Structure formats: structure tokens, C-alpha cells
Amino acid sequence: LKKGSQVEALFSYEATQPEDLEFQEGDIILVLSKVNEEWLEGECKGKVGIFPKVFVEDC
């Protein structure tokens, strides 16, 4: 996944840490960066945070 690409949430993700990005199933997320193999940083609904890659798929 490249910076600036968009992904769609397959499942809702509930934030458990302040840096987490919370979203609902079906939301479109703009990928800002790759944190590591399992986590991405993205923006959704004006909020920025990190989230697990397994919760999303390429649009």
C-alpha cells in the first residue's frame, strides 16, 4: 500500500489507545504511511491515527 492510496474498512475498528484511528465498516481511509508490516497510519473523517492492516482492503 502506497502513501496516498485509499483503503476500505472491512470491519469496524474501536480505538483502544489515543493514537488509534477509529472507523466503521465501509469507511474509506486515506493511507498516510506504513508503520510496520501489520499497522498503517491513515486519515478518516478528519482524524489521523494508526490501525491494523487486516481491517482494510484496497479500494
Score class of each variant (00 low, 15 high):
residue 48 V to A: 12
residue 2 K to E: 07
residue 11 F to R: 13
residue 21 L to V: 10
residue 9 A to W: 07
residue 48 V to W: 01
residue 30 L to P: 13
residue 37 E to I: 06
residue 22 E to V: 07
residue 3 K to R: 07
residue 15 A to E: 00
residue 32 L to H: 14
residue 1 L to C: 09
residue 31 V to I: 14
residue 37 E to T: 10
residue 2 K to Q: 15
residue 35 V to I: 09
residue 4 G to A: 03
residue 11 F to G: 10
residue 33 S to T: 09
residue 19 E to P: 00
residue 51 F to P: 00
residue 2 K to P: 13
residue 26 G to S: 06
residue 3 K to A: 06
residue 32 L to Y: 09
residue 50 I to G: 08
residue 5 S to V: 12
residue 25 E to R: 13
residue 36 N to I: 04
residue 30 L to V: 12
residue 17 Q to P: 00
residue 25 E to Y: 00
residue 38 E to G: 10
residue 18 P to T: 04
residue 42 G to W: 08
residue 21 L to P: 05
residue 22 E to P: 10
residue 42 G to C: 02
residue 27 D to A: 11
residue 54 V to T: 14
residue 53 K to P: 02
residue 23 F to V: 04
residue 45 K to W: 11
residue 43 E to W: 07
residue 10 L to Y: 08
residue 7 V to R: 08
residue 9 A to P: 13
residue 8 E to A: 14
residue 10 L to S: 01
residue 48 V to P: 00
residue 40 L to D: 05
residue 20 D to S: 05
residue 2 K to A: 13
residue 22 E to L: 09
residue 55 F to S: 02
residue 36 N to G: 11
residue 27 D to K: 08
residue 57 E to R: 15
residue 2 K to F: 13
residue 46 G to P: 02
residue 24 Q to A: 10
residue 54 V to I: 11
residue 36 N to R: 00
residue 13 Y to D: 03
residue 17 Q to N: 11
residue 42 G to P: 07
residue 1 L to M: 13
residue 22 E to K: 06
residue 37 E to Q: 04
residue 45 K to T: 04
residue 29 I to R: 07
residue 36 N to W: 02
residue 5 S to N: 00
residue 18 P to D: 14
residue 59 C to T: 14
residue 41 E to G: 10
residue 54 V to M: 14
residue 26 G to E: 06
residue 15 A to P: 12
residue 28 I to H: 13
residue 47 K to F: 09
residue 52 P to N: 01
residue 53 K to T: 02
residue 19 E to S: 09
residue 32 L to N: 14
residue 3 K to T: 11
residue 23 F to E: 12
residue 25 E to A: 14
residue 54 V to H: 15
residue 12 S to K: 04
residue 3 K to C: 15
residue 37 E to H: 08
residue 41 E to W: 09
residue 23 F to P: 01
residue 10 L to C: 06
residue 2 K to N: 13
residue 56 V to F: 09
residue 50 I to D: 08
residue 24 Q to F: 10
residue 25 E to W: 02
residue 29 I to V: 01
residue 44 C to S: 02
residue 9 A to N: 05
residue 40 L to V: 06
residue 25 E to K: 15
residue 34 K to W: 07
residue 32 L to Q: 11
residue 50 I to H: 07
residue 57 E to K: 14
residue 31 V to K: 03
residue 26 G to P: 02
residue 58 D to S: 12
residue 15 A to N: 01
residue 40 L to G: 00
residue 26 G to C: 05
residue 49 G to Y: 05
residue 33 S to Y: 05
residue 53 K to H: 00
residue 41 E to M: 14
residue 3 K to H: 00
residue 20 D to T: 04
residue 10 L to A: 11
residue 30 L to D: 14
residue 33 S to G: 14
residue 8 E to N: 15
residue 33 S to E: 01
residue 8 E to C: 15
residue 12 S to P: 09
residue 3 K to W: 02
residue 59 C to K: 06
residue 5 S to R: 11
residue 29 I to E: 07
residue 52 P to L: 11
residue 1 L to I: 13
residue 3 K to E: 12
residue 18 P to H: 05
residue 20 D to M: 13
residue 56 V to E: 07
residue 3 K to N: 01
residue 49 G to M: 12
residue 15 A to K: 08
residue 49 G to W: 11
residue 29 I to M: 03
residue 23 F to H: 11
residue 49 G to P: 02
residue 44 C to V: 06
residue 57 E to N: 10
residue 19 E to W: 10
residue 28 I to W: 12
residue 13 Y to N: 06
residue 37 E to N: 14
residue 19 E to F: 03
residue 21 L to W: 06
residue 3 K to V: 12
residue 4 G to E: 01
residue 53 K to A: 09
residue 20 D to P: 10
residue 39 W to Q: 01
residue 22 E to Q: 15
residue 9 A to V: 00
residue 1 L to Y: 15
residue 26 G to W: 01
residue 17 Q to D: 03
residue 54 V to L: 07
residue 27 D to G: 05
residue 23 F to G: 10
residue 27 D to W: 03
residue 54 V to C: 14
residue 56 V to W: 06
residue 55 F to Y: 13
residue 43 E to N: 02
residue 44 C to W: 10
residue 14 E to Y: 10
residue 5 S to C: 12
residue 13 Y to S: 06
residue 51 F to K: 00
residue 8 E to I: 15
residue 46 G to W: 08
residue 32 L to D: 12
residue 42 G to Y: 06
residue 33 S to A: 11
residue 57 E to L: 05
residue 27 D to N: 02
residue 35 V to T: 01
residue 48 V to Q: 09
residue 12 S to R: 08
residue 36 N to E: 00
residue 21 L to E: 00
residue 56 V to I: 01
residue 34 K to F: 06
residue 49 G to H: 01
residue 3 K to G: 02
residue 28 I to A: 10
residue 4 G to T: 04
residue 50 I to Q: 03
residue 44 C to D: 04
residue 7 V to T: 14
residue 21 L to A: 04
residue 14 E to N: 13
residue 30 L to H: 15
residue 3 K to I: 14
residue 47 K to S: 10
residue 25 E to V: 12
residue 18 P to I: 03
residue 50 I to R: 11
residue 33 S to I: 08
residue 34 K to E: 15
residue 34 K to L: 07
residue 33 S to F: 09
residue 14 E to T: 14
residue 37 E to D: 13
residue 56 V to G: 02
residue 15 A to G: 11
residue 24 Q to H: 12
residue 40 L to R: 10
residue 45 K to A: 02
residue 16 T to S: 11
residue 16 T to M: 10
residue 5 S to Y: 14
residue 14 E to H: 14
residue 16 T to R: 06
residue 1 L to G: 12
residue 49 G to C: 02
residue 30 L to A: 09
residue 43 E to Y: 11
residue 47 K to T: 09
residue 58 D to W: 05
residue 38 E to W: 07
residue 19 E to C: 11
residue 42 G to M: 00
residue 48 V to R: 15
residue 59 C to D: 05
residue 48 V to K: 14
residue 26 G to K: 12
residue 51 F to Y: 08
residue 54 V to G: 10
residue 33 S to W: 08
residue 52 P to T: 08
residue 57 E to P: 09
residue 29 I to C: 05
residue 4 G to S: 01
residue 16 T to V: 08
residue 58 D to C: 14
residue 49 G to T: 00
residue 36 N to L: 00
residue 46 G to R: 07
residue 1 L to D: 05
residue 26 G to Q: 00
residue 27 D to Q: 10
residue 43 E to K: 09
residue 51 F to I: 05
residue 51 F to D: 03
residue 40 L to A: 02
residue 55 F to T: 11
residue 8 E to P: 08
residue 33 S to L: 04
residue 25 E to Q: 14
residue 36 N to A: 12
residue 42 G to T: 01
residue 46 G to Q: 01
residue 30 L to F: 11
residue 47 K to E: 01
residue 43 E to Q: 12
residue 20 D to K: 03
residue 23 F to I: 07
residue 45 K to Y: 05
residue 12 S to W: 04
residue 7 V to W: 00
residue 9 A to I: 05
residue 56 V to L: 04
residue 16 T to L: 12
residue 13 Y to H: 11
residue 29 I to A: 05
residue 39 W to K: 03
residue 57 E to M: 06
residue 8 E to R: 15
residue 31 V to H: 07
residue 42 G to D: 01
residue 23 F to N: 07
residue 31 V to S: 04
residue 21 L to D: 08
residue 8 E to Q: 15
residue 9 A to S: 02
residue 32 L to P: 11
residue 28 I to S: 13
residue 21 L to F: 03
residue 2 K to L: 06
residue 5 S to A: 14
residue 58 D to M: 10
residue 42 G to R: 00
residue 20 D to A: 10
residue 32 L to I: 12
residue 26 G to T: 01
residue 45 K to I: 00
residue 52 P to S: 04
residue 2 K to M: 04
residue 44 C to T: 06
residue 11 F to E: 04
residue 43 E to I: 04
residue 52 P to I: 02
residue 51 F to S: 08
residue 30 L to Q: 15
residue 40 L to I: 10
residue 1 L to W: 14
residue 28 I to T: 14
residue 29 I to W: 12
residue 16 T to Q: 10
residue 54 V to W: 07
residue 46 G to T: 00
residue 31 V to D: 12
residue 51 F to H: 10
residue 48 V to D: 06
residue 38 E to S: 02
residue 15 A to L: 01
residue 39 W to G: 07
residue 19 E to Y: 13
residue 43 E to G: 11
residue 55 F to H: 09
residue 8 E to S: 13
residue 43 E to S: 12
residue 44 C to P: 04
residue 31 V to W: 04
residue 13 Y to V: 08
residue 9 A to K: 09
residue 28 I to M: 12
residue 10 L to F: 05
residue 13 Y to Q: 14
residue 54 V to P: 06
residue 10 L to V: 04
residue 38 E to Q: 00
residue 6 Q to P: 00
residue 33 S to M: 03
residue 16 T to I: 00
residue 23 F to S: 03
residue 22 E to Y: 04
residue 30 L to M: 13
residue 22 E to N: 03
residue 19 E to H: 11
residue 26 G to D: 03
residue 17 Q to F: 01
residue 47 K to Y: 02
residue 19 E to T: 12
residue 40 L to Q: 04
residue 19 E to I: 08
residue 4 G to M: 09
residue 28 I to D: 13
residue 45 K to Q: 04
residue 17 Q to S: 15
residue 48 V to F: 05
residue 39 W to I: 11
residue 37 E to K: 00
residue 52 P to K: 04
residue 52 P to Q: 03
residue 41 E to R: 13
residue 57 E to F: 04
residue 36 N to F: 06
residue 40 L to F: 05
residue 50 I to E: 04
residue 39 W to C: 07
residue 10 L to T: 05
residue 31 V to P: 12
residue 39 W to T: 02
residue 6 Q to G: 02
residue 24 Q to G: 01
residue 37 E to C: 11
residue 15 A to T: 00
residue 58 D to K: 14
residue 57 E to V: 10
residue 40 L to P: 12
